[in-house]
Design a protein around this nucleic acid. Structure first.
Lengths: 385, 385
DNA sequence: CTGTTAGCGCTTTCAG
DNA sequence: CTGAAAGCGCTAACAG
């Protein structure tokens, strides 16, 4: 164990390699080799050095080591809200594989602010992080990092910045599966509530929703789409009616902005009141028999609004969530949900980053994981409509 | 913005202060002063250096800075399970105040292993962390850190190691409030399920339970106490009956091990099956009308076991949880719970650590936060018994 | 006000 | 196999 530097009040003056060497009666270089396990060192010397280090409670200084040129053994992790279970699980997965590989995880929570994200990125650079994992944040952070040649893996999102890897869920197909399930049950007026549609994740979920409708020949209506997020601005005037499936020019292949016409102007809510917006959505279209919540936060909101207005699930409304969290298995009825292997996603992303960090610069790759629809009690054939 | 080092393939050879100085036509020290904002530098020079730095995409190297003697601006955070919302919230709070103060958070999740905790502690030392926050983990980690003179704040637990601060919830009084509430409703046979009783947290919760019973003159029975945790070993033979309140020598003041006699030998379950153990507890004493779950994990378990056996809440069993998590507000009926300000606890702990880090060595202090009982639908007067 | 000089603690040639 | 020497990038005296 080595009871270390109990003397001296405990503070000040860490034990340095110099002192260890002295204690062992060798030079610093030899001590370094002995401890580091590199190069040739006589076995008995090695032992003596080890003993000395132990006795003195020596802990190598990573700053010095890093400065000298080796890697920092630090990986940055940027998430947008640790209080959201999704990110917490992600972080847990990341930490797990990284620490097993001998890396330290520096955590930054940007609380959804691009500015803080960029600051975090800068901090990672300053620490000479060997790589960075980025969960949903703005482009700037990614850009700074990539620009400086730091390996980056984006998780659960693709910013579109060139030169970084990504690990993500296939949002479109997950979302499509969810909506198909609803359609198969006989639902036709299906509302969708989404957090944001600025990034690929939200866009894709909406895309999957539309695709499912289109394939089933069910008309799509913007009135049933609620984008809670920081939208790019409500598009004026166009609060139109049902337009048949194939109408738009968009399809699965479209460019980055082909979903632009899906942003819903807020139909009645004061603006900054999500619960109110959901209620308004439901009020505006009494024919809606099912709600698809595009992530766990939104699902929570929908669930609460439904409970609050005394709506029965699945009798009055079927509900499906994208992302399967604890509470969804605790409530009655349990929620049908698109389960994403979040923890594993974290692990995968970390592993990918490590690979990238170690190996040379190969071409960037994306791992797309398939989600799985778990059918539970919150979905049933429509009782009305 | 500074488009930085787009040349050169992006990798290798970070921009150093030396290059910035060269670009600005000054010496490194002047450049350092200009950027750091210390000492005297002519305004126009300062501007020129700043511009150069910007142009080159200079990012200072913290290793060098740290090595030179300044602080690392790194704080270590050790939690035992990030997937547990409790710790995730704690971490979020910690990160929040720390990053606001310009510190970087290095996160380690020990998954309940003392060994990994100790390794994490060692890593923090190696990084010359300015301080460390420890959420439930074994003593060794705390000891190593304190021994080396690193400021430590323990969160939600007190290891008993001298020389570190602590921020915790008053588990005993919270727990007492929960049980008193049950008693007031008329419950007499109240089961308690606890995660562990090795550490202060679990011990105190049990203590509060006993105290409430004693004060109400309600007999205490070991049969209604289930310790799921890594117990210190089941005590042989003594699976006895109700013993009146004041019987034991224990009271609120006791030494560290005065709860030793409350560890329940497992009455019927295979040993490693928590759900089975809860079920067995309920089966063993049909008179039980209420269950007190000593933390969110246990509450989840209890809730599921109850649902599974078709028991109605609160008709068949009243349920109270220590710790109020999302799902408890989503289920029907909503759970009565002892709410702890977890996020704030994280913030407080971080603030305390910063204080300690900055100021000199004052005497160690503990902040004990008061929890609050939130009464909801899961508790009602007993329908039987 | 600015440049020169010394290292911080460690690893790594390069001789011995 | 071991030691001496040279820095990694930065800052902090201390002279100019």
């Amino acid at each position: 164990m080595g009871n270390a530097r109990a003397r001296n009040g405990g503070k000040r003056a860490r034990v340095t390699l110099h002192e260890v060497a002295e204690e062992a009666g060798t030079s610093r270089s030899t001590a370094s080799r002995a401890l580091g396990g590199h190069g040739y060192v006589a076995e008995h010397i090695r032992e003596r050095v080890r003993a000395a280090a132990e006795r003195l409670g020596y802990v190598p200084d990573v700053s010095a080591r890093t400065l000298k040129g080796r890697s920092s053994r630090v990986i940055g992790l940027l998430v947008s809200d640790l209080r959201n279970q999704f990110y917490a699980q992600l972080a847990a997965g990341v930490e797990q594989t990284l620490s097993a590989a001998g890396y330290q995880v520096v955590l930054v929570d940007d609380h959804g602010s691009e500015e803080r994200a960029a600051d975090g990125a800068r901090a990672f650079l300053a620490m000479r992080a060997d790589g960075v994992l980025l969960a949903p944040v703005g482009r700037p952070a990614t850009e700074v990092l990539v620009e400086h040649g730091t390996p980056v893996v984006e998780v659960d999102r693709r910013s579109g910045v060139r030169g970084c890897d990504a690990v993500a869920i296939d949002s479109e197909s997950g979302s499509r599966a969810a909506v198909e399930h609803l359609l198969e049950l006989g639902h036709r007026k299906i509302a969708v509530v989404v957090d944001e549609t600025k990034w690929a994740t939200g866009k894709d979920r909406l895309k999957g929703y539309r695709a499912a409708l289109r394939e089933a020949g069910v008309p799509y209506s913007r009135r049933r789409v609620l984008d809670l997020g920081l939208r790019l601005g409500p598009r004026p005037g166009t609060d139109d009616e049902d337009d048949a499936g194939g109408t738009g020019a968009e399809d699965g292949t479209g460019g980055p902005d082909d979903m632009a016409d899906t942003y819903s102007g807020d139909p009645g809510d004061g603006g900054r009141d999500p619960a109110g917006a959901v209620a308004a959505l439901l009020d505006a279209d009494p024919d809606v028999t099912a709600v698809f919540a595009a992530n766990n936060v939104v699902a929570e909101l929908v669930w609460q609004v439904l409970k609050q207005r005394g709506a029965a699930v699945p009798e009055d409304y079927s509900v499906v969530s994208f992302d399967d969290q604890t509470w969804m298995r605790m409530v009655e009825p349990k929620l049908t949900a698109v389960r994403q292997p979040v923890y594993d996603m974290g692990r995968r992303a970390a592993a990918l980053l490590l690979e990238r960090t170690g190996g040379g610069p190969s071409r960037s790759q994306s791992h797309i994981l398939q989600p799985e629809l778990v059918v539970r009690g919150s979905t049933a054939p429509p009782a009305r409509g």
